[in-house]
């Protein structure tokens, strides 16, 4: 079985495509917003706006990782999406605890309220989808190996 036909090497399919598009839109929104914040009012809240930019970069990497096939990129996707989940929870708590530092609008402040809480829900859906995809790929690979064993026997 070559890498190109392995199920784990297949890019997003089915409902995963919707996930990719939502990530792409979020990446676009976060990038646009942080570009604006840094260009026009970085001095007001350097901490929050730097985080905004970091979040934007992570969303872009996550989007790419969801699209590109292969186990390595699947791991990159898990890492970036996990980072987002931690980010939205930590910054969400901090924006309530220390609004003077983190209260400024960013994709993660107040648990992503400005983005209809999508930044909070999306990483959970993303991780669920990725683990399911990983499990399905492993079963399929195991099955392929088993059938090759049968053939060689």
């Amino acid at each position: 079985m070559t890498a190109s036909t392995s199920p784990s090497a297949r890019p997003a399919s089915g409902v995963g495509r919707v996930l990719v598009v939502v990530y792409a839109i979020l990446a676009l929104a976060a990038t646009g917003r942080s570009f604006y914040q840094i260009v026009s009012k970085f001095d007001e809240a350097p901490v929050a706006y730097s985080l905004s930019a970091l979040a934007a970069v992570v969303y872009i990497v996550a989007t790419v990782a969801l699209v590109v096939p292969g186990e390595t990129w699947r791991r990159v996707a898990i890492a970036t999406i996990g980072f987002e989940l931690v980010g939205v929870v930590v910054v969400g708590v901090l924006s309530l605890a220390a609004p003077e530092l983190f209260g400024h609008a960013s994709v993660w402040s107040y648990f992503g309220m400005g983005y209809l809480f999508i930044p909070l829900v999306l990483p959970i859906l993303g991780l669920l989808w990725l683990t399911r995809r990983g499990r399905r790929a492993r079963t399929a690979d195991a099955r392929a190996v088993a059938s090759e064993d049968v053939r060689s026997a």
Binding site: I25, A29, G32
Partner: peptide, 19 residues
Amino acid sequence: DALEFGLYLGSAILLPVGA
């Protein structure tokens, strides 16, 4: 801010093209 407005409008115009 006109710049912020323009960024939103520009991004919005790209979405239907992409989708």
